[in-house]
C-alpha cells in the first residue's frame, strides 16, 4: 500500500540526479512529498511560500528556460487558486510544466470541503492543450510521471492523499491510454485514481455471483482512450463510471461525451453529485458519497 503522492515523492528522488529537474512547492512540501526531493537536492527545490499563483508563474518561467519542472500544491489550490496562471501562463505559453496536484478529491478526509477539490478534472480538462492524468497506484504514478517528463506541453497529474493497493507491476502506460481488467460482457466500470481498486474489488465479488464485468482504468483523462470506451460500450451491457470527483465534468461526463458522439448509450455515474465534500475518515467519507464496491455491485444486481 502506498499513496500516489508518496510514489510521486519517490519518483522525484529517483530522477533527482538529473540537473535539469527543478521542483517547486508552496509551503506544503511535507504533505505533497516534495520534501523527499528537497532532502537530497535542496538547491533545486524552490519553496515560494503560501503563494500558489506565484508558484505556477515561477514554474512557467523555469520551464520556459528549459528546466524539467514539477510544481506541487493541493489540487484545490492548483486548480482553484491558480486557475488563471495555469491557463494563461502555463498553457497559453506552451510551457512543459508538470503540475502535480496532491490531496485531490474527498479522499482528503478530515480537513473537509474547503480542501476537497472535486472539480479539478473538469477545470483542467477544459483548458486547451492541457493533458490530464490520474494514476491509480504507486507503480502507475511513477510510469505516468516518467512519460510526462518527456511529453511536450502542460500536464496536470492528479494525486491522492491516502494509501492505495498496488495494482500494476510492469504494464505499459501511454498518453491517451487506458487499462482494462477482464473481458466480461455484463458491464463495464470506468474508474480513475482511487476508484480503480474499488471497482476491481466489486468486479471480484460480482464474479462470485456470476456477473462478469470489466474495469477500465482511465489513467489518461485527457486525451482519453475513446476507442476503448466505445469498444466496451459495444461489447458489454451496462456502463457505470465511478470517481472521487463531481459527476459534473468528471470521467462520468467525459465517457458520456465520447459515447454521445460515437456510440450513444446510457451511462450511470457514481461520484459527488453537485454538492460539497464532508469531513471524516476518508473511508467513511467514501461510504457517505457511495464511492464503494457495494454501490457499484448494486448497479449490476438491482435489476
Amino acid at each position: 500500500m502506498i499513496s500516489t503522492r508518496k510514489a510521486y515523492g519517490e519518483f522525484l528522488t529517483e530522477i533527482g540526479d538529473n540537473p535539469d529537474v527543478v521542483v517547486l512547492d508552496a509551503d506544503l512540501a511535507a504533505a505533497t512529498k516534495t520534501d523527499m526531493f528537497k532532502k537530497e537536492y535542496p538547491e533545486r527545490h524552490i519553496d515560494v511560500g503560501i503563494a500558489e499563483q506565484d508558484l505556477v508563474g515561477t514554474a512557467v518561467g523555469l520551464a520556459l528556460s528549459g528546466k524539467t519542472v514539477f510544481a506541487s500544491t493541493f489540487a484545490m489550490f492548483m486548480a482553484g487558486r491558480a486557475y488563471d496562471q495555469v491557463r494563461n501562463m502555463a498553457a497559453y505559453s506552451h510551457s512543459n510544466v508538470n503540475l502535480c496536484a496532491t490531496h485531490a478529491g474527498v479522499m482528503v478526509g478530515e480537513d473537509g470541503p474547503t480542501h476537497q477539490c472535486i472539480e479539478d478534472i473538469a477545470i483542467m480538462n477544459v483548458i486547451p492543450t492541457m493533458k490530464v492524468f490520474c494514476p491509480a497506484d504507486g507503480v502507475s504514478t511513477k510510469k505516468i510521471l516518467s512519460i510526462c517528463m518527456n511529453e511536450d506541453g502542460p500536464k496536470y497529474i492528479r494525486l491522492g492523499r491516502s494509501d492505495l493497493p498496488e495494482l500494476y507491476t510492469d504494464e505499459e502506460f501511454h498518453v491517451g491510454g487506458s487499462h482494462t481488467c477482464g473481458d466480461g460482457k455484463d458491464g463495464t466500470v470506468f474508474a480513475t485514481g482511487s476508484t480503480v481498486s474499488i471497482a476491481l474489488e466489486a468486479q471480484n465479488e460480482l464474479k462470485e455471483k456470476g456477473i462478469n464485468i470489466r474495469v477500465v482504468d482511465l489513467y489518461s483523462i485527457k486525451p482519453v482512450d475513446k476507442e476503448e470506451i466505445v469498444r466496451c460500450a459495444k461489447e458489454t451491457e451496462k456502463l457505470v463510471t465511478i470517481e472521487d470527483h463531481s459527476i459534473i465534468g468528471g470521467i462520468g461526463s467525459i465517457v458520456s461525451d465520447v459515447l454521445t458522439e460515437l456510440y450513444p448509450k446510457k451511462v450511470e455515474k457514481i461520484g459527488i453529485n453537485d454538492t460539497f465534500g464532508k469531513s471524516g475518515k476518508w473511508t467513511e467519507v467514501y461510504k457517505y458519497f457511495g464511492l464503494t464496491k457495494e454501490n457499484i455491485m448494486y448497479k449490476f444486481i438491482q435489476e
Binding site: D54, G57, T58, V60, G61, L62, L64, S65, Q85, M89
Partner: peptide
C-alpha cells in the same frame, strides 16, 4: 513570477 522563474 515568470521573470523570477527565468532568473532562477
Amino acid at each position: 513570477s515568470v521573470a523570477n522563474g527565468m532568473a532562477l
